[in-house]
Amino acid sequence: MRASELAELAAFAAVARHRSFRKAGEERGVTASAISHAVLSLESRIGIRLLNRTTRSVSLTEAGELLRSYVDPAFGEIASALDALNKFRDTPFGRVRINVPNSIAPFVIGHVIGPLLENNPNLQLEISATDRLVDIVGEGFDAGIRFGERVSEGMIALRLKQRLRLVVVGSLAYFARRPIPETPHDLKRHLCIQNMFPSGARYAWEFERDGQPVTFHPSGPLSLDDHELMVEAAESGVALAYVWENRVEKQIASGELIQVLDAWCQPEEPLYLYYPSRRHPSAGFRALIDTIKEA
């Protein structure tokens, strides 16, 4: 097989994985038009249409599904073969792609980056930080980080040491106008930022004390899906924010923000690094796991 034919198959596999020429191009480091041209060339060469294209979506034809069922394992075998060569190198070589929620990425994976790259200079690390729920297999990630051990079938979950918690904070200016809440029930008389998922769905503020859970649904005028913006809004005195404690440690220590309801704010479920059980972990991925364990 010629190199150009292999490149066409790789382009097709990327489109099949992402259902998008743009995302396939980003993965391959080329333009979407280059990916489209490669797939069209493949279809012309074999005389069969592999993709259904509309202005809004890309899907596989029956022939495309069949080809993908053969191509994906083949490229997996090639990747494993190349990874096996790492035993002849001093450090792993290759790319590792990780997905982690944007709201916790800085204090969950941030401290791992330096040691990992310093000890593995031939490694290419890609971290996608998004609070969107991601299908790591479908989007080509090696692993993801998520709360709780409730992961999809066929996944391996490795528990991380961190246990994070969400806390309620407000500014001195805000509490100059309103009393400090003593229990979560008092929040009904406060302006509270609504926390959003990227999908637009809101999630509740959850508390617990002495085995007594309390769920509060904010109804304030401000809704945000970014914790940095929540912190800035709280600092400006607009409203109370429900954010990760790690993000506001400095502001609490300096007095810029006041933490309230501390006894009611319980640690979240443990964090897990999860990855497909059927995928042979590459040397680079094993290096990532070892660095996370050490950190």
Rank of each mutant, 00 (worst) to 15 (best):
R17G: 05
H18E: 15
H18K: 15
H18N: 13
E27I: 03
R28K: 14
S33E: 14
S33R: 15
S36W: 01
S36C: 01
H37V: 14
L40E: 06
L40Y: 08
L42Y: 10
R45W: 04
I46D: 11
I46K: 15
G47N: 10
G47E: 14
G47H: 12
R49P: 05
L50S: 02
N52Q: 12
N52K: 09
N52T: 12
T54G: 07
S57Y: 12
T61C: 05
L66I: 09
L67Q: 04
R68Y: 10
R68L: 13
S69E: 10
A74P: 09
A74Q: 09
E77N: 02
A79S: 11
A81P: 03
L85I: 03
F88C: 02
T91Q: 03
G94L: 03
R97T: 02
N99M: 00
S103R: 13
S103N: 12
I104N: 11
V108A: 01
N119R: 10
P121T: 05
P121H: 05
N122T: 04
N122K: 06
L125W: 00
T130S: 13
V134D: 00
D135E: 10
G138N: 07
E139Q: 11
F141T: 02
D142W: 00
R146C: 01
R146I: 06
E149S: 15
V151N: 02
V151Q: 03
I156R: 13
L158C: 03
R159G: 03
L160V: 02
K161L: 05
R163Y: 05
L164C: 11
R165F: 09
R165W: 05
V167A: 04
V169K: 02
S171R: 01
A176T: 15
R177S: 09
I180C: 07
D186V: 06
R189T: 10
H190V: 05
M196E: 10
F197N: 14
P198Q: 15
G200I: 11
A201Y: 08
Y203H: 12
A204D: 10
F207V: 07
D210R: 11
V214A: 12
T215Y: 06
H227C: 07
M230P: 15
V231K: 13
V231Q: 10
E235I: 13
S236N: 05
G237V: 06
A239F: 02
L240G: 01
Y242Q: 01
W244N: 15
A253V: 10
I258W: 06
L261R: 09
D262Q: 13
A263V: 14
A263C: 09
E269Y: 05
P270D: 06
P270E: 04
L271C: 09
Y274W: 03
Y274G: 00
Y275D: 05
P276I: 00
P276R: 00
P276G: 01
R278C: 00
R279D: 00
A283Y: 05
A283I: 01
R286D: 00
A287K: 03
L288Q: 08
T291E: 12
K293T: 07
K293G: 09
K293D: 07
A295V: 13
